[in-house]
């Protein structure tokens, strides 16, 4: 398709000044106020994406989900402890059409022992995980579980992708542990696909 050259005039915001009122003047004749314009409405089919606020794992155990960000060192800044999961703030949300929703949590800690995310080491395709947030909820079905060395996480481009159909990626640590060499060797990556319709939130 031939694209004709665009003629883009330099954009300068146009201020529309209001006529200043001066004391002692007669009031300016009122402009004819027309009927109110229609207000564009969201179609009923509109799905408003919501970040997850809780996750229910295959066993039925539930955890709250906090918003987490990547630090300057490239490390995802997880909630401390084992009983809260983190949702990466650069990823997709419940109801987004594309991309990965990334949740991670500590599998264990020295102070608190083994956490709920440890059950992912037993996870199998077909098992269900549910996300909920702000009135929206979505069920997911696990399609794969794998270990990948932590050192090569950045080469797993599909985990943090904006592309492809919406899917949930659950991440924790697993594999051999060496306290002198950064702890667990591996990340456990569980990928799950949405099942059924998103339960609508009312906005």
């Amino acid at each position: 398709m031939l694209l004709a050259a665009l003629a883009v005039a330099s954009v300068v915001a146009v201020l529309v000044p209001q006529a200043p009122a001066r004391e002692g003047d007669r009031p300016a004749p009122a402009r004819a106020a027309g009927p109110p314009a229609g207000v564009g409405r969201q179609a009923a089919s509109q799905v408003v994406p919501r970040r997850p606020e809780a996750v229910r794992l295959p066993s039925g155990a539930s955890m709250p989900v906090d918003v987490v960000a990547t630090g300057g060192d490239g490390v995802l800044d997880l909630p401390p402890g084992i009983d809260r999961a983190g949702w990466w703030d650069g990823g997709s949300r419940i109801g987004d059409p594309f991309g990965t929703i990334v949740l991670a949590a500590h599998v264990d800690s020295i102070t608190d022992g083994i956490g709920p995310f440890a059950e992912l080491l037993r996870a199998r395709p077909g098992q269900r995980v549910r996300l909920a947030g702000s009135g929206a909820a979505q069920e997911f079905e696990i399609v794969s579980v794998r270990l990948t060395p932590r050192a090569s996480l950045s080469r797993q481009a599909s985990i943090f992708s904006v592309r492809g159909p919406l899917r949930l990626v659950l991440i924790t640590c697993a594999g051999p542990f060496d306290a002198d060499r950064g702890g667990y060797r591996d990340n456990l990556i569980a990928v799950a696909s949405p099942v059924g319709r998103r339960r609508a939130s009312l906005e």
Binding site: V75, V107, S109, R150, S154
Partner: peptide, 21 residues
């Protein structure tokens, strides 16, 4: 919005689910 892609996720400090554990 949001932060860049993580290059590392450290999600366990106790070694309790390591094989053999």
């Amino acid at each position: 919005s949001g932060s860049g892609r993580p290059t590392a996720i450290r999600a366990g400090t106790a070694g309790l689910v390591a094989p053999g554990h």
